[in-house]
């Protein structure tokens, strides 16, 4: 019993991280229709900046917001300066994000070296809440809360606000959006910034959860991509559900069949692609 409760809880908290990571990628994909390989770099930079800011200020929440905003600003610059220049050519955009990802990887190695860092966070992150005989670490509870709150805010934004309606229109039909008089360039820039922001948040939270080290940017990328593909490209709710499914599968997979646990990532994607090529929540 304890095994199942613990693993489920761990799976859900891992899912929270996956949602922060994949949610941003799915928004970027949905609106801009690009393969953003630099998404892992946002995570990596967010994590390193979070560690640095926390060391400088001692305030975790300041580090979280400051680092995510910095990453978002970087994303906006990236979109304006580079991606805009090759708009409309999928392969060129993909190559650009790959070049940027490599650049960021090497730059981070130069700045922060090869040793892993861990963000300790406020003292209460190390404590646990006891409930009905089970213990729940506060850090994990925080991750779940952060992802939950951001999902609700984003969902409200997408469904209930005018700007959100523009985002939905852009995801469904890019050409139509232009005809409706929406300023598409600004919209794309904003969405790219928002996606980078979410990845930055994931980076800070993730560095408190499992540390940050060189190469992590490419290591977490498979998870981000599979969340987007399984959920349906462009769908926030899809990313939410997919993150939950994959977080749980990954946790139980690692605990029960450590060797082939990567199949828990590949298999759901293969199954979804076979039966619903557009993903769980994707529109044709």
């Amino acid at each position: 019993m304890e095994f199942w409760v613990n693993q489920t809880f761990n799976g859900i908290s891992y899912a929270a991280l996956l949602f922060l990571l994949g949610g941003g990628l799915t928004l970027i994909f949905g609106v801009m229709k690009i393969v953003n390989i630099a998404h892992g770099s946002f995570y990596l930079v967010g994590g390193y900046l979070g560690v640095a800011l926390f060391a400088a200020t001692g305030n975790f929440y300041l580090a979280l917001v400051g680092s995510a905003l910095a990453v978002a600003a970087g994303g906006v610059v990236l979109e304006r300066v580079f991606l805009r220049a090759v708009e409309g050519d999928d392969l060129r955009q993909m190559l650009l994000t790959m070049g940027i990802a490599l650049f960021v990887q090497d730059a981070c190695l130069l700045v922060w070296g090869g040793d892993p860092f861990s963000l300790r966070g406020p003292a209460y992150f190390a404590q646990s809440v006891k409930l009905g005989g089970f213990t729940f670490p506060i850090l994990r509870l925080f991750m779940i809360a952060a992802a939950g709150v951001l999902f609700v805010v984003l969902w409200w934004f997408e469904e209930k606000t005018r700007a959100g309606a523009m985002v939905r229109a852009a995801i469904d039909n890019a050409e139509m959006t232009e005809a409706l008089g929406i300023n598409v360039p600004i919209l794309k820039m904003a969405v790219f910034g928002l996606g980078a922001f979410l990845a930055g948040v994931a980076g800070v939270v993730g560095s408190a959860f499992m540390g940050i080290y060189p190469g992590l940017d490419f290591e977490i990328l498979p998870y981000a991509f599979v969340v987007v593909i399984v959920g349906g490209m462009g769908s926030l709710s899809g990313a939410f559900v997919a993150a939950l499914v994959l977080g749980l599968l990954d946790n139980f997979g690692k605990a029960l069949f450590p060797e082939i646990s990567y199949f828990t990532l590949f298999a759901p994607m293969a199954i979804v692609l076979a039966f619903r090529p557009t993903g769980l929540f994707g529109r044709a």
């Binding site: 090759v86 060129r92 190559l95 650009l96 990802a101 490599l102 650049f103 090497d106």
Partner: peptide, 13 residues
């Protein structure tokens, strides 16, 4: 890696 990164960017642009 930096040079390779530049190769990607230059090719793309």
């Amino acid at each position: 890696v930096m040079v390779l990164a530049a190769a990607y960017v230059v090719t793309a642009l």
